[in-house]
Nucleic acid binder design. Structure first.
Length: 204
DNA sequence: CGGAAGATCCACT
DNA sequence: GTGGATCTTCCGA
């Protein structure tokens, strides 16, 4: 099935904003323990690198933690935050530019039962809240640091052609949780599928 | 070497 | 809408 064909690496070697918008509707596929978990991406955020105060690569900051953020576009950048959550990014652009797209939310396509099980400390599983946020999404998909630096065009973690979204279905707005980033906090780099119930709040 | 912050989530009011 | 959990990472002293 062509929807399962991975996006080529060239897809990612573009500005983060363009990649982010074009990632909506695509399928995030994780093959683990002989099972295939598939999410259709409905919300993403672009981070522009050095000029972007909200980016982990702001001002060219380079540490052991964010090293994979400087890999060439098409790699995964996975980091640990708030002492308990993993977040997944797709690196964009050329090597050393630090651009990336934060994968924020998706709706289940395949393997939903396993995703619910992965989200085991949810008091009562609610299908609509399976992967509506970057931390929840990684929980449901079983994504952690072991995938940091992985190339996203191959198993076990890849993004495939999926079901691209029409221009009219795309909503944009300011990014979440980056109030510290001064003027950059207002840049409209958050993209979502208009009206999709799996998009995290506040609604786009 | 210590303190503070953090691209979040959950429970509760 | 508010506050607590929880701990790695980073920067300044």
């Amino acid at each position: 099935m062509s929807r399962f064909r991975p996006l080529p690496i060239s897809f990612y070697r573009r500005p983060a904003g363009d990649v982010a918008r074009d990632l909506l509707g695509r399928w995030l596929v994780h093959e683990v323990d002989g099972e295939r978990l598939v999410l259709r991406l409905v919300e993403v955020e672009a981070y522009l690198g050095a000029p972007d105060r909200a980016s982990h690569a702001w001002g060219g900051r380079r540490t052991a933690r964010n090293e994979s953020l400087y890999l060439p576009g098409g790699h995964a950048y996975v980091y640990f935050i708030y002492g308990m959550h993993w977040c997944l990014n797709a690196v964009t652009g050329d090597r050393d530019t630090g651009g990336a797209v934060l994968i924020r939310a998706g709706e289940p396509v395949e393997g939903e039962e396993r995703m619910v099980a992965n989200r085991r400390w949810l008091k009562k599983p609610r299908p609509g809240d399976l992967a509506g946020g970057p931390g929840k999404l990684c929980q449901a998909m079983g994504i952690d640091r072991s995938l940091d630096g992985h190339l996203l065009d191959r198993s076990p973690l890849m993004i495939t052609r999926g079901e691209p979204v029409e221009e009219g279905e795309v909503a944009a707005g300011p990014r979440i949780g980056v109030d510290y980033a001064a003027e950059a906090a207002a840049w409209p780099l958050r993209f979502g599928v208009r009206g999709n119930p799996h998009v995290s709040r506040p609604r786009l």
